[in-house]
Every structure is written in structure tokens, then in C-alpha cells.
Amino acid sequence: MNHATLPQRVKIVEVGPRDGLQNEKQTIPAEVKIRLVDMLSDAGFPNIEAASFVSPKWVPQMATSAEVMAGITRRPGTVYSALAPNMKGFDAALAAGVDEVVIFGAASEAFSQKNINCSIAESIERFRDVAEATKRHGLKLRAAVSCALGCPYQGEVPVAAVRDVVARLRALGCDEIDIADTIGVATPRKVYAAMEAAMREFPVEGLSGHFHDTYGQAVANIYAALEVGISIFHSSVAGLGGCPYAKGATGNVATEDVLYLMQGLGIETGINLDKVVDAGQFIAGHLGRPASRAGNAIAAKRGA
């Protein structure tokens, strides 16, 4: 195999503080979240998903988002992102000084209907105001395509559906689009197909892979995405973030595992793996659970 075809550098988007923590049952104090974001900033991430401006009624864990954004020490050059699903959320995100607004749409019609009682097309149309306001204020706009590689309700998701959602999100003016395996069912062949479909509608340099490790396939899927030229990946420190649809399933791929892979492939990330391990051990310790496999192995090796 010709390894020269893999990207020489990738961007890792750290989603632990938002996507990772939002499903945690125990309330995590703002100061713990602030410390986590600061440790991640110090590790050199180019992009950290730090907050979510959604109704606290739906996601109580994110009620401290404004406090977290106000309390973090911002690293020059790091983009701090937040989810903002409506104009109320956008106004709060703007006031909090976010650099990038994140919106989302599902590639599965069944998922869209079950989750938000409307079609995919309608759900994306609802983001038009947010998208226009984001652009007007000179902020970056990113979108996630959830259930792009499988759905808990309809099972298989056709690649044509992925392509259609990507086209709709492109039309809203998105700078980056994430292809997300929300329930972690994908294997490399599916990743090739979904990414190739997305690349027909959006420049490859703006597409990212967001893989969950439910079936232990996330690292293999990242490698598959690298092979087709994807150079942005989302991951969560310590593998934070459960999957709400699969009992006992793990959630996001762990950042430590992804960085260990990239290091082994000689792909640059600009991120200090040791500092990420420290961040992972910190938050895992706070939550009272083990961190990621690579994180635990590296920590054990250095006698942490």
C-alpha cells in the first residue's frame, strides 16, 4: 500500500467538553469544565468544541456554557466552537464570544422524525436564520451530519441521503461539514462510500470524520477516511460521551487513541499527546472511571 497518499497533516477537533460531557448524569461544575478546556487549549488543539447553547431543559449539563466560555483562557489560534440550534442559542453563543457556530442535520429520515418531528429538509431549513446570522457576524459555520453511516431506527442509510444533506448544508454556507457515525456501526467500506458521496458535493478539505467506537471500529474507520483524503477528525478526550441508543456502548473515539495512531503514521497534528493524556486522566478521575486505552497505557508507562 502506498502510504504517501495519506494526508501529511490532520486537524483534530476536540469535542470532549461539549459532545463528551453532555450525556453525563452527574452535574459537572463549571470550574471542572473550564480546567478541562484550559488543559486542552494548552495541549495545542486548533479547534475545541467547548459549549452548547441549547435549552437547559433538554441538556441540563450544558446550562453552564456561558460561564465556561467566560472562564476559559483562550489560546491564540484556537477556534472555540459551540452548538446553537436556534436564534436564541445563536444570540447566547455570540454574547459568549464563540468563534464557530455548529448546527446539525440527520442523514436518516426516521431519525429526524423521531428526534425533532420533522423531515430532514425541514430541519435544515430551520437553521437558515442561524446560518445567515453566523455569516453576518463573520463567524465560522460548521454542520454535523448525524447518523450518516447507520441509524438506530431505519438501520442502513443510503449514500444518496448523505449526499443530499451535504448539498443542503453547503447551500447554507457551511465552512466545514462533519460526517458522523452517531451510533458507531460503520466499517471501512461504508466509510469509503459515505465520504466519496460527500466529496461529490463539498470540497474534501472541508469534510471531517466523526466516529463513535461502539463496535470498536473507530480507529479503522479513521484510517479508511484518511485513505480517501479526509484530513479533519473529531475525537473526545478520554473517550467521553456515551451513545444514548446502545446500552453500555462507548461513545466518541478517544483523542489519545487517535493521536497515537497519527503519531505512528507520521502524520502531524501539532498537538502534545502527553498533555492530552494529562487532561484525560484529570477528567476521568473526576468522573471516577478509566480514561482511554492509549491514555491509560501512556500514563501507566510513565508511572502516573
Rank of each mutant, 00 (worst) to 15 (best):
A249R: 00
G20V: 06
N117I: 07
R136N: 08
Q113S: 09
V191H: 01
V157S: 07
Q154L: 00
F211L: 02
L261D: 07
C147Q: 12
A238L: 09
E201I: 01
I72K: 07
A224M: 04
A299W: 10
Y215R: 15
S236N: 05
I124K: 08
R35A: 12
A70P: 07
D91W: 04
Q263T: 11
G173M: 07
H286F: 13
N2V: 01
L207Y: 03
P290Y: 03
V54K: 14
L240E: 04
T187C: 08
I298K: 14
D175E: 15
C118A: 12
V37W: 06
K247G: 10
A96Q: 10
A198K: 04
V32H: 03
F45W: 01
E196F: 02
T255W: 00
N221P: 08
A50V: 15
E24W: 05
H286K: 10
E205S: 12
E196N: 14
Y215F: 14
D164G: 01
G303A: 13
D178L: 09
Y80M: 10
D42I: 12
H286I: 08
S112E: 00
K140I: 10
G248P: 11
L287E: 09
E125I: 13
Q154R: 03
I179K: 03
M62Y: 06
L94Y: 05
W58G: 12
A224H: 00
A92H: 05
L83Y: 02
R168E: 03
P17H: 05
G239A: 08
G105F: 07
A4T: 12
N23I: 04
D164W: 01
R189K: 12
A160I: 00
A171T: 09
V165H: 06
M262K: 05
Q61V: 06
S55L: 11
R75T: 13
C118D: 11
L169V: 09
G155H: 04
S81Y: 00
I28H: 05
E205V: 09
N296W: 05
G184D: 11
R128N: 15
I179D: 01
E109W: 02
V228Y: 05
A121C: 09
K88M: 04
A284C: 02
D42N: 15
R293M: 11
I298V: 13
Y223P: 08
Y192A: 01
G241C: 08
E205P: 01
G239Y: 01
P46C: 10
